[in-house]
Simulated scan of single mutants.
Amino acid sequence: MAQQKDIIVKDLHELYELMELPDIGDSSGFTINYLQDIFKQLPFRSVSFRPNFFSFLFIQEAFGNYTIDDLQFPIQPGTVYFTNPGNFRIFEWHSITEACLITFNESYLKEYVHSDVYREFSFLLTETVEPRVLSDEQFEVLEQLYRQIHREHLGGSPYKNQLIGTLMVVLLLKIKEYFFQDYNPIVEGTRSSRIVKEFKLNLENHIRELLSGKVQQQMRVQDFADRQLLHPTYLSQVIKSKTGKSISTWIADKLVTEARVLLQDQDLSVKEIANRLGFLEAPHFSNYFKKHTSLSPADYRKQLLQ
């Protein structure tokens, strides 16, 4: 396995392929699998990488280490780990009896969980969350939920994604209850971490204002820097160094995610969607969407119907 440095991976399928692990056979934006079925040869140390997805790791019984940015945490039974897109990480497995990993991207959240998911679950934007060792009773509640999600994921229901989305709402609410009742975001991490979190919040609020019609023009890097009273070059450097992605890439990912959701509504014309997202002309939006997805909005809609 080639040891590359600081790789950005779009999903778990891509990460496992990079590390020559068994193919999980899913690139849909959501995965759930038991790690004892994946990691047969232990100990195992991953490449250093930055995921472009969220993950929850439920450790029933396993041991190892997990590195998030410059922090290292032990992997131990009864622990739940949460990480969001952009964090640098490495994981090491020493032994695995049972551990379940759920990953999902923002598009999946917006489509199947809630279109305004960050309003209810703002902790998803938190830059660094320390793992939490739960009581036996708390872990059992989560275990029942992820086992049900796993069953639905393997099942053939025509409503599979909707069922999983509903169960994910319950899971996120329980995570919120167990992790964040006493969480104080003001003391979170370093100054750089707080800058990144504030940028993510500002970006999310800006997209919400675009969609609601409160603003009609997309914010620039300078505008985001002004919100935090920072020089745009400094803000850009912090975002790039902490997340591995530039501000323009963060903005593009956000706009494309929202465009995908809006394009599912067949009653909305491409021109209307372009206006909602702050594009002055529909052709500009179409070119932008195709640049980031390799599909025109019309072709994307055809793909949805198929």
Rank of each mutant, 00 (worst) to 15 (best):
residue 112 Y to D: 02
residue 278 G to Q: 01
residue 118 Y to E: 06
residue 80 V to Q: 00
residue 268 L to G: 07
residue 94 H to T: 11
residue 113 V to Q: 01
residue 276 R to I: 06
residue 110 K to G: 09
residue 234 Y to T: 15
residue 270 V to R: 09
residue 232 P to Q: 10
residue 168 M to E: 02
residue 181 Q to V: 14
residue 258 E to G: 05
residue 37 D to I: 03
residue 215 V to A: 03
residue 183 Y to M: 05
residue 12 L to I: 14
residue 246 S to Q: 11
residue 108 Y to H: 01
residue 38 I to E: 00
residue 120 E to D: 12
residue 192 S to E: 10
residue 223 D to Y: 06
residue 132 R to P: 07
residue 242 K to S: 09
residue 88 F to N: 08
residue 147 R to G: 08
residue 21 L to T: 01
residue 145 L to H: 02
residue 227 R to G: 09
residue 191 R to G: 13
residue 95 S to D: 12
residue 181 Q to H: 15
residue 35 L to M: 08
residue 119 R to G: 15
residue 89 R to V: 10
residue 199 F to T: 05
residue 143 E to D: 12
residue 289 F to W: 02
residue 40 K to T: 00
residue 295 L to M: 13
residue 292 H to R: 10
residue 36 Q to R: 01
residue 79 T to E: 05
residue 39 F to S: 00
residue 300 Y to M: 08
residue 155 G to S: 07
residue 158 P to M: 00
residue 14 E to Q: 11
residue 206 H to T: 07
residue 9 V to S: 02
residue 270 V to I: 14
residue 159 Y to R: 05
residue 49 F to Y: 14
residue 48 S to G: 07
residue 287 N to V: 13
residue 124 L to K: 02
residue 52 N to C: 09
residue 225 A to C: 03
residue 243 T to A: 03
residue 150 H to L: 14
residue 229 L to H: 12
residue 109 L to D: 02
residue 118 Y to S: 06
residue 21 L to Y: 01
